[in-house]
Design a protein around this nucleic acid. Structure first.
Lengths: 153, 153
DNA sequence: GGCTTCGGTCAGCTTGGTTGTCTATTATCG
DNA sequence: CGATAATAGACAACCAAGCTGACCGAAGCC
């Protein structure tokens, strides 16, 4: 045991890296081997409601051209489908395919598994405290709201 | 307030993103405007003891050619100097320049500022709990050790 | 109807990282 | 010792993610 308290930022980075690795590993095992970092964020952004490319660009903080490429690769891999938008002939509605929804629910599985494991080691109340602390910190910086989930760099 | 507990992974991602933004912003303000994500990790890996390119490659989980490019850009920017290694003529010792050390200590400033701010909002004991929880979770998955600080993706 | 705005695409480029090959130095073992 | 193997790094080519810039068609607004 070391005396000094570790910088929280460092711990956050390490924990997040751990989660990312675990997600990658778990999804690979579940038949989703070739996921790139942004894929998850994009699928999450499209979600159950669908989204247009421009909305997604705003959400992820990248250009619509960048999103176009990203979406191409998601369509190729069978996670996303483009639907023509009846309300607005300019835009294309992006929706999750069943495979896309399946991927998201696998990701949730991994998260649940991780949390259960953590609860086992640090205790459920401690884990709750951790959750509350993080939530408060995040909300604090975003006017009480939760920010969109974006790739980190 | 929402009833459902948010997935911890999501909170971690948001908090980490927050920290990353804050670090970028703070360092930009301190005269380090053009930092790329891996720069910080590399400088941290070199640290006060210095390191060789191959060591750094292992630490960051990338190829030594990749590291070579990375180090080039750090040398260009004046953060790192290459010293000839007396003990082993094949390898080159990478060390932080004074500007590099200055950068790291600015990063620590930002972290301290953030932690103080957090302590103010969630309370110091809550913050301690958060730190302990994260530390335990991270150590758990690395045989009790702290893993090296690596870029997340 | 005609200007403006907006969603998306096409083309070209930058760049952070990769694989693959090569040289120079050090380590090993007869 | 000297020959051979292993190691640190350099050079070159390539790849892919995301960017900028120019453009087109659909929709909104007088």
């Amino acid at each position: 045991m070391d005396m000094a308290e570790l910088p929280l930022a460092r711990l956050l980075l390490m924990a997040t890296r751990l989660v990312a690795d675990e997600l990658n590993e778990g999804l690979r095992a579940a038949g989703h081997p070739d996921l790139r970092p942004t894929h998850g964020f994009a699928l999450n952004g499209i979600g159950v409601n669908g989204a247009t490319a421009t909305q997604l660009a705003g959400l992820l903080g990248m250009t619509k051209q960048g999103v176009a490429k990203l979406v191409d690769s998601l369509v190729e891999r069978g996670y996303v489908e483009r639907e023509r938008n009846v309300a607005d002939g300019r835009s294309v509605l992006l929706v999750l395919s069943s495979r896309g929804r399946e991927l998201l629910s696998r990701a949730e599985d991994v998260q649940r598994r991780l949390e259960a494991e953590w609860a086992e080691h640090v205790g459920p109340s401690q884990l709750s405290a951790l959750r509350r602390g993080l939530e408060q910190i995040v909300r604090e910086r975003h006017a009480g709201e939760l920010p969109p989930l974006r790739p980190i760099w």
